[in-house]
Amino acid sequence: MIEIDRITRLYNGVPAVDAVTMTVETGTVTVIVGTSGSGKTTLLRMINRLEEPSSGEVRINGESTLTIKPHILRRRIGYAIQGHGLFPHHTVARNIGAVPELLNWSADKISARVDELLRLFSMEPATFRNRYPGELSGGQQQRVGVARALASRPDLLLMDEPFGALDPVIRTRAQDDLRRIQKQLGSTIILVTHDMEEAIRLADRVAVMDSGQLVQHGTPAEIITRPATEFVADMVGRVERPLRLLSLVPVSELVEEGVAEGEALPVDASLRDALSVCLWTGRAAVPVEQDGVLVGRVTFEAIRARARAHP
């Protein structure tokens, strides 16, 4: 559990982060969203003490981070940033093994861990281990950056706009990968982004920052349906609210007996995907399949009913 307790950062007397309190449960993804200058990155950087708080503290599993030397603390916390920050003069393997190397793991253990992580990110170790960052595509560089942050099995992974430099198609894939890997490893992640779409896609909890203050902290559904302030409502986008909400619900929740024409959607597709298919094809229902077997359909009526009945 990560407890952020009334943490404040002043620049020349002006608060960049103003008395933010927030708890992050182990094994969950918290996404901090805000416009530029909202203090979201400063908040993140105070967790691993790249910025020192002016007052307040952060506790990791009850232990105050102020009692640990900054560089020792940082070795326990993974950190992935926009533009990946890979060392251009080190191979992929050496980049991923950087923190274990700092922690004096044995060479065998590091090499085994590097291969494990490369496989986890669908990169063949034999092919990629000895490449240099300059020889990778943008998406591959970003995956290596995240793999490096996870290498020492950190208590916590901090990510600052990790997908900011990727083009939209690769970004969606990287987000799906991150969600899959997080579920698999049970990691605790705090991620900063300016993109509400990304936040809703990835988060168990969304924290919205505005002018240094935490204005709302809740589940994506809460943020969409009950925005605490005008600012949050703007961030969500009023017109797109129902669509965002539908994107949170898998079709499995509304699947019913019956048949429908056309190509089937997988059960873990969102209602938003199903709605899109309905609108595009002009049909009133979409078939749903699980592992290649048809399990029923989702109707346009049901989706409309669900969109109106917000929780």
Binding site: L50, P70, H71, L73, I81, G85, P88, H89, L102
Partner: peptide, 25 residues
């Protein structure tokens, strides 16, 4: 700069940053 930021973020000391990142580059 991002590589330096990453080096700091992963817990390299100033000396380690100098010897492992800045000097070789």
């Amino acid at each position: 700069p991002v590589a330096i930021e990453a080096a700091r973020g992963m817990g390299m000391t100033q000396r380690q940053r100098l010897l492992r990142v800045e000097l070789p580059l």
